[in-house]
Design a protein around this nucleic acid. Sequence first.
DNA 1: TCACCAAACTTCAGATTGGC
DNA 2: GCCAATCTGAAGTTTGGTGA
Length: 249
Amino acid sequence: MLAYPFGPLVEGTWVERRKRFMLDVALPDGTMITAHCPNTGAMTGLTNPGARVLLSVSDNPKRRYRHTLEAVEADGVWVGANTQNPNRVALALARARVAPFPAAGEIRPEVKYGKAERIDILVTGEDGRRTFIEIKNVHMLERPGEASFPDCVTARGAKHLGALADVVAAGDDALTVFLIQRGDCDVFRLARHIDTAYGEGFDRALAAGVRFAALRCSISPEGIHADGLIPILDGMTDVQLSQAARVAA
DNA sequence: TCACCAAACTTCAGATTGGC
DNA sequence: GCCAATCTGAAGTTTGGTGA
């Protein structure tokens, strides 16, 4: 299903990522522009000068740069580069009651909890039971057909896993969705060699009862299409079976 | 209803601190 | 004094919350 339509896009060529939020792009007519890069991560595998990019255009007069990077072509497919889109896609799918999101309940995005934490989506069932849902953006392909996360050390990500484990300990449900913004993968694997602390946090969260799911999305100039869940392979824990059983439940 | 503010995202560069 | 480790601020945009 088309979970998030892009609207009109402009195609260009990646020239240089000058600063974290600024990307120089060459338009087809040779014009050089600076676009906003809404991805503050390392963008491993995507920072390829000469690669085709898709840009959305904003009419907001307050913006310094009218264009926003939406996708980069890598390995022959479009890869979503806007880290704000996964949350939008997840919210749309949650409202459509698509697995792995709860089949019923009140949906609220960006909900504060604890002292200073903020969860991406909170679903409250009619019985009052809450499901805290954290969305993680995935774009890296370490091996053909195998998506991986994280692409760099993410202390914040490990912190989120600990917070979700606390949520489960308090009697609520917690779900982490690895939303993969590329269609050329069949499995998801945790990149423990990149961030061992995140891997350890993953193990603790899994043992505590946090559920995990990997959701593959295909990117096209029309928008982001939700393909469905793919297996999480891990080698240390049989996450795939665990995930399948829990999602089915 | 509108305007304003804070928080979130992540990493780098520069400043600061501690140890030798 | 030097080096390494740690801390802090900044970068642009979006979105939700709050107050007028």
